[in-house]
């Protein structure tokens, strides 16, 4: 990993990821999105088994309340400014990905951002980014 450019506090406050940085992000980004082509529109649509993927639905509950109350308890134990491990990790990564690496394309930034995982799970996002290229009409067209 290339943690180099900035140290914690000096870094930007914004963490960048080219694509998503964990399964939770992927699920949230792609699930139930996109154009729907159902069987009524095209009889050629084939039903295929989809593994059950649960997006998290946030519903406040007594458990949530008790957890927040525990956070109040932790306020006493935890000296100010001291953060839990996930926060530290996220903070550090934020520093790395911050700043003007910005407007670039996702690839490098994404690889770095990939160090941060959401709690739900992780998966390798280090694969080369598959990127169809666009054939300009003016270019010679070659058949595949």
């Amino acid at each position: 990993m290339t943690i180099a450019t900035n140290d914690g506090q000096a870094g930007g406050a914004l963490q960048r990821s080219g694509s998503s940085s964990g399964l939770a992000d992927v699920v949230e980004t792609v699930l139930d999105k996109g154009v729907v082509i159902d069987a009524q529109i095209s009889v050629a649509v084939v039903g295929i088994q989809l593994l059950e993927i649960n997006a998290r639905v946030v519903v406040a509950s007594v458990e949530t309340y008790l957890r927040f109350a525990q956070a109040v308890d932790r306020l006493d134990i935890t000296p100010r400014n001291q953060k839990g491990l996930p926060d530290l990790v996220q903070g550090a990564t934020g520093a790395v990905t911050a700043g003007k690496a910005a407007s670039g394309l996702g690839k490098t930034v994404g690889a770095i951002g990939g160090a941060v995982r959401d709690a739900v799970g992780e998966l390798g996002t280090d694969r080369e980014r598959e990127r169809p290229r666009r054939r300009r009409r003016s270019e010679e067209q070659h058949d595949e």
């Binding site: 694509s19 154009v35 082509i37 980014r129 598959e130």
Partner: peptide, 23 residues
């Protein structure tokens, strides 16, 4: 996602809902 995101950086793309399979 990677295919669609990669495509989006070079050309407009209309995502089709995950799981859409035709004959």
């Amino acid at each position: 996602q990677e295919l669609l995101d990669g495509t989006a950086t070079v050309a407009p793309v209309l995502p089709v809902r995950f799981g859409t399979v035709v004959t």
